[in-house]
C-alpha cells in the first residue's frame, strides 16, 4: 500500500502516513511520537492512540452520496471532519462551524496538503482517520 506524505502549503513535511495490510494506519509526525489509527470493527468509532494512550475517537456519521462526515474527539478538542466522496478535499470545523483547517489530496497523488494555523498532528490524525474507516456491514435501508 502506498504511503501518504502530509505537507504544509509551503511544502514543508508535516508527517508520513503508513497503511498496514490490516488497514491500521500509523501517522509519523515530523515532531513528536507516532500515532496509531485503527477501527476495531466496521462501522465502529476509529481509535487514535499514542503508544498505549487512547487520545480519542473519530466517529463516522451516515454518509451521503457526495459527502462523508466524522466527529473527532481528540484530547480536549471536538471537530467535525467532512470529506468529499473521493477524499480529495477535507474541511475541519468546530461545533459552532468555525473553519479550523482544510486539506487537499489530488487525484492519484501521494501528497496531502494541510492548511491550518493550528498544531497539525491531531488535525492530521482526525483527517487521516477517515481513510481507516470501513462502513458497517449493512444491507440497503430506504431513507
Amino acid at each position: 500500500m502506498r504511503d501518504l506524505r502530509c505537507v504544509a502549503p509551503d511544502g514543508a513535511l508535516l508527517a508520513h502516513l503508513h497503511r498496514h495490510p490490516d488497514g491500521t494506519l500509523t501517522l509519523v509526525p515530523e515532531q513528536g511520537p507516532p500515532l496509531t489509527i485503527r477501527q476495531p470493527s466496521p462501522g465502529a468509532p476509529i481509535l487514535v492512540h499514542r503508544a498505549d494512550e487512547l487520545l480519542g475517537t473519530v466517529t463516522p456519521e451516515d454518509p451521503t452520496f457526495t459527502t462523508r462526515t466524522f466527529t473527532a474527539r481528540l484530547g480536549s478538542t471536538a471537530w467535525t471532519v467532512t470529506a468529499n466522496a473521493f477524499a480529495t478535499r477535507y474541511r475541519v470545523t468546530t461545533p459552532d462551524d468555525a473553519l479550523v483547517a482544510t486539506a487537499t489530496h489530488p487525484v492519484l497523488s501521494s501528497t496531502l496538503t494541510l492548511t491550518t494555523s493550528e498544531p497539525p498532528t491531531l488535525l492530521l490524525a482526525a483527517l487521516t482517520a477517515t481513510r481507516a474507516h470501513r462502513p458497517a456491514p449493512t444491507a440497503y435501508t430506504p431513507s
Partner: peptide
Amino acid sequence: MAELRALPQHACD
C-alpha cells in the same frame, strides 16, 4: 482480497 480491504473503504447504494 486482503490488499483491497486495506484500501480506504466506501459504501454505495
